Simulated assay, not measured.
Amino acid sequence: MSDRQLIDHETLLTLQEVMEDDFGHLIDTYLNDSEDRLTAMQKALASGDGEALRRAAHSFKGSCSNIGAQTLVAHCQHIEQAAANNQLVGLETTLVTLQGEFGQVRHQLVVYQ
């Protein structure tokens, strides 16, 4: 695991203050939904469905932005734009990178659960 911080902890602390007791539920929901979105992105890319890939990347991008995971946002934005232009070749590498970094984000979020 990398020691590199992939989430903005100030964003999370602000969310924690606002959400209070519901914050843990927010993190759990983000993690569970993220797995579903990553799976949807994999399936869409494997089937060559650029529009489904674009939608899944856009949705995941919003969730990542909400928790301050800007590196993930950048990867999602790249995938979303490429899929919108039906340029799917080479996105496998970006998706693998996205999945690996999501694993690191998951690890970093453990302290907030």
Rank of each mutant, 00 (worst) to 15 (best):
M1A: 14
M1G: 15
Q5V: 14
L6T: 08
H9S: 13
T11R: 12
T14K: 12
L15D: 07
E17R: 14
D22G: 10
F23M: 06
H25C: 00
L26A: 06
L26C: 08
I27C: 09
I27Q: 06
Y30H: 08
Y30K: 05
L31I: 15
D33E: 15
D33I: 08
S34Y: 05
E35Q: 14
E35R: 13
R37C: 06
R37M: 10
L38N: 11
L38H: 15
T39A: 12
A40P: 04
A40W: 00
M41F: 13
M41N: 11
M41I: 13
Q42I: 10
A46S: 12
A46V: 05
A46C: 01
G48Y: 07
G50V: 07
E51M: 11
E51H: 11
E51D: 13
A52K: 10
L53Q: 07
L53M: 05
R54S: 11
R54N: 09
R55E: 10
A56D: 02
A57S: 11
A57R: 02
H58W: 05
H58N: 05
H58C: 05
H58A: 04
S59V: 01
S59A: 13
S59W: 00
F60H: 06
F60T: 01
G62T: 01
C64F: 02
C64M: 12
N66M: 09
I67F: 02
I67Y: 03
I67G: 04
G68K: 03
Q70A: 09
T71N: 03
T71K: 07
L72F: 06
L72E: 02
V73F: 01
A74K: 07
H75Y: 15
H75P: 00
H75V: 05
C76Y: 14
C76P: 11
Q77S: 07
Q77I: 01
H78K: 12
E80R: 03
Q81E: 13
Q81D: 08
A82F: 11
A82L: 12
A83K: 04
A83V: 03
A84H: 11
A84G: 15
L88A: 01
G90A: 02
G90P: 02
T93L: 04
T93Y: 06
T93H: 09
T97Q: 12
T97E: 13
L98N: 06
G100M: 01
E101H: 03
E101D: 13
F102I: 00
G103Y: 08
G103E: 15
Q104D: 14
V105I: 10
Q108R: 04
Q108C: 06
Q108T: 07
V111S: 13
Y112T: 10
